[in-house]
Measured scan of single mutants.
Amino acid sequence: TFELKGKVGKVVKIAEDHYLVEVEGDKWIAYSDEKLSLGDRVMVVDVDGLKLKAKRIP
């Protein structure tokens, strides 16, 4: 999973306390310091076990 750092994905679902992000065809649980919206493009900035930390990108 460490190779996911720096990869770009898309928010495909918003849950109460996390997001579901699709990166290279796989879906991952993600969290972010900022509020994300459905369809936002994100970059993986860190990997915490099986969770990704994501940041919105333009």
Rank of each mutant, 00 (worst) to 15 (best):
V8D: 10
L52A: 02
K27A: 09
R41W: 14
P58N: 10
L50A: 09
E24S: 07
V21K: 00
K55P: 01
A54S: 03
S37I: 13
D17N: 11
E22C: 10
V45P: 01
M43C: 11
L38K: 08
R41V: 13
D48C: 13
D40F: 04
I14T: 12
W28F: 08
W28I: 03
R56Q: 06
P58A: 11
D17M: 09
K53F: 11
E34K: 04
V12S: 06
V11F: 00
K53A: 03
E24F: 06
V12G: 02
T1W: 15
V12K: 05
L52V: 12
R56P: 09
H18L: 12
V44H: 01
K53P: 01
M43A: 06
A15M: 13
K53S: 06
L20T: 11
S37L: 14
V8I: 13
K10D: 12
T1Y: 15
L36Y: 03
K27D: 11
G9C: 06
A30I: 04
K55E: 14
D48S: 08
E3S: 02
I57E: 09
K7L: 05
A15K: 13
K55N: 08
R41F: 15
E16G: 14
L36C: 09
G49F: 04
G6R: 01
G6C: 05
A30K: 00
S32H: 02
V11K: 00
K10A: 14
K35L: 13
V23Q: 02
D40Y: 03
H18Q: 11
K7I: 02
W28H: 07
S32I: 07
A54P: 01
M43H: 05
L38H: 08
Y19V: 07
G39Q: 09
Y31V: 13
L38A: 09
K5S: 10
V44K: 00
L50W: 14
K53N: 06
D26F: 14
V42S: 01
K51Q: 07
V47T: 07
G49L: 03
L52S: 01
L38N: 07
P58L: 09
L4N: 04
K7G: 04
W28N: 02
V8L: 09
V42L: 03
G49R: 04
V11C: 09
H18Y: 12
V44T: 02
V44E: 00
A15H: 14
K27C: 09
V11M: 02
D26L: 14
F2N: 15
E34N: 07
L36P: 01
L50C: 14
K55T: 08
M43P: 00
H18N: 10
I14S: 08
K7Y: 03
I57Y: 11
Y19S: 03
E16Y: 13
G6W: 03
V11E: 00
A54N: 01
D17P: 10
D17R: 09
L20D: 06
E34Q: 08
K13S: 11
L50P: 09
Y19Q: 02
G9I: 06
R56N: 03
P58W: 10
G9Y: 02
D33K: 05
L50K: 09
V45H: 03
E16S: 12
T1I: 15
Y31H: 13
A30V: 04
V47R: 06
I57F: 10
V44F: 14
K10C: 13
E22G: 03
A15D: 12
L36D: 00
E22M: 09
K55H: 05
L36Q: 01
S32E: 01
T1P: 15
H18P: 00
E34L: 04
D26H: 14
G39I: 03
L50F: 14
V44G: 01
L52G: 01
K35A: 13
H18V: 11
I29L: 13
D40M: 06
K53C: 06
D48G: 03
L20C: 10
I29H: 13
D48A: 06
K53I: 03
I14E: 11
S37D: 13
V47K: 05
D48E: 12
A30Y: 01
V21T: 02
K5L: 15
P58V: 10
S32C: 14
E3F: 06
D46Q: 04
D33G: 06
K5W: 15
A54D: 01
K55F: 04
D17E: 12
D33N: 07
I57D: 07
V44Q: 01
V8Y: 09
G6A: 02
T1D: 15
V42M: 05
A30L: 03
A15S: 12
V21E: 00
S32R: 03
V42N: 00
G49P: 04
K10M: 12
Y19R: 00
V44A: 02
K51D: 04
S37P: 02
Y19E: 01
L38Y: 09
K13Y: 11
E3N: 04
E24K: 04
G9K: 00
G6D: 08
L38I: 11
I57R: 03
V21L: 11
Y19M: 07
M43F: 06
K5C: 15
V23N: 02
D17K: 08
V11L: 04
F2M: 15
P58S: 11
E22D: 09
K51A: 09
H18A: 09
D48K: 06
E24C: 15
K13H: 10
D26T: 14
K7E: 06
E16Q: 11
I29Q: 14
G6E: 04
V12D: 04
W28R: 03
I29R: 09
S37G: 12
E34W: 04
K53E: 05
D46P: 02
L50M: 14
K13N: 12
V45R: 01
R41G: 12
D40G: 04
T1E: 15
V45T: 09
K10I: 12
S32W: 01
K13I: 09
D46E: 11
K27H: 10
S37F: 14
V45F: 03
I29D: 11
I29N: 10
Y19L: 06
Y19I: 07
M43L: 10
R56I: 06
I57A: 06
R41L: 14
E16W: 12
K35W: 10
S37K: 10
K51S: 10
V42W: 01
L4E: 08
V45G: 03
D46I: 02
H18W: 10
D40P: 00
K51E: 08
K13R: 10
K51P: 02
S37W: 13
Y31L: 14
K5Y: 15
T1L: 14
Y19H: 02
G39W: 13
A15P: 03
K35Y: 10
S37R: 11
A30C: 06
V47S: 07
F2C: 15
K51M: 09
I14C: 12
E24R: 03
G9M: 05
H18M: 12
V8H: 11
K13Q: 11
G39M: 10
K27V: 09
R56V: 06
G39C: 12
G39A: 09
K13V: 10
V23D: 02
D46C: 05
L36M: 08
D48F: 11
L4H: 03
R41A: 14
L20F: 12
V47E: 04
I14W: 07
K55G: 08
Y19G: 01
V47Q: 13
K5T: 14
E34G: 08
G25I: 04
E24G: 06
I57M: 09
V42K: 00
L4A: 05
Y19P: 01
A54L: 15
H18R: 07
G25K: 05
F2L: 15
L50G: 08
G6K: 01
V21Y: 00
P58C: 14
D33T: 06
W28D: 01
G9R: 00
L38G: 03
E3W: 09
V21R: 00
D26M: 14
K10F: 12
T1F: 15
K51L: 09
L50E: 10
A15C: 11
K5P: 14
D33L: 06
K5M: 15
L36I: 05
K10E: 14
T1C: 15
K13L: 11
V42Y: 01
V8K: 08
T1A: 15
G25Y: 08
Y31K: 08
G39K: 06
K35E: 12
Y19C: 07
V23S: 03
K27P: 08
V21M: 08
V42D: 00
E22H: 07
I29P: 11
M43W: 04
I14N: 05
E3T: 02
D40W: 05
K53L: 06
G49W: 03
